[in-house]
Amino acid sequence: MPSPLKALCGVFAAVLLTASPAAADESTVDEAGEVVAAAPVRVMPLGDSITQGGSIGGYRLDLATLLRNTGRTVDFVGSMTDGPGSMPDRNHEGHPGWTIAQVDAQVVNWLRTYTPRTILLHIGTNDMYGSDPAGAPRRLSALVDKITSQAPASDVFVSTIIPIRFADATVRNYNAAVVPLLRAKAAAGKRVHVVDMYPAVPISDLPDGIHPNAAGYSKMATVWFNALSSVPGSIGDPRQPGGSCTATPRVTGTWSGGFQAEVTVTNPTASAITGWTVRFTLPGGHTVTQVWGGTASGSVTVTNAHYNGTVSPGGSAGFGFIASGQGTAAIGTATCSSP
Rank of each mutant, 00 (worst) to 15 (best):
T113G: 01
S244Q: 11
H211R: 08
D62N: 08
A187W: 01
N213G: 14
T254D: 03
W292T: 15
G10H: 09
F76R: 05
V107D: 04
T254A: 09
T266Q: 11
T170H: 02
Y174Q: 05
V179W: 01
L61S: 09
V263G: 02
V144K: 08
A221G: 08
P283R: 06
L181E: 15
S316H: 15
P199E: 10
S312G: 10
P45L: 09
N91S: 12
G236S: 07
P238V: 11
T264K: 15
A151C: 14
A247D: 06
T248E: 14
G53P: 05
T65C: 01
P21I: 09
V179H: 02
A14S: 15
I273K: 00
N175I: 03
G293C: 13
A13F: 14
L17R: 09
I203P: 02
Y198V: 01
T51K: 01
G78V: 02
V74E: 00
H92Q: 11
L228H: 11
S3H: 06
V195D: 13
T295H: 10
H193M: 12
A151T: 13
T170F: 02
N126A: 07
Y129D: 12
A329F: 10
A19K: 00
I100N: 02
V11A: 14
Y198H: 15
Q52C: 01
L16C: 07
P212K: 12
A105N: 12
F259A: 06
H193N: 11
P4K: 05
A177K: 03
F259T: 08
A188I: 00
V41K: 03
Q260I: 04
V231T: 11
K146S: 12
V108H: 01
S154M: 06
V77F: 05
P163Q: 04
C9H: 10
P313K: 10
N109F: 03
V265S: 02
V265E: 03
L61G: 00
I203S: 12
R239A: 15
N226D: 13
F166P: 00
G189A: 07
N126D: 13
G332L: 10
S131L: 12
G285Q: 13
H122S: 10
I161K: 02
A221M: 08
Q102G: 02
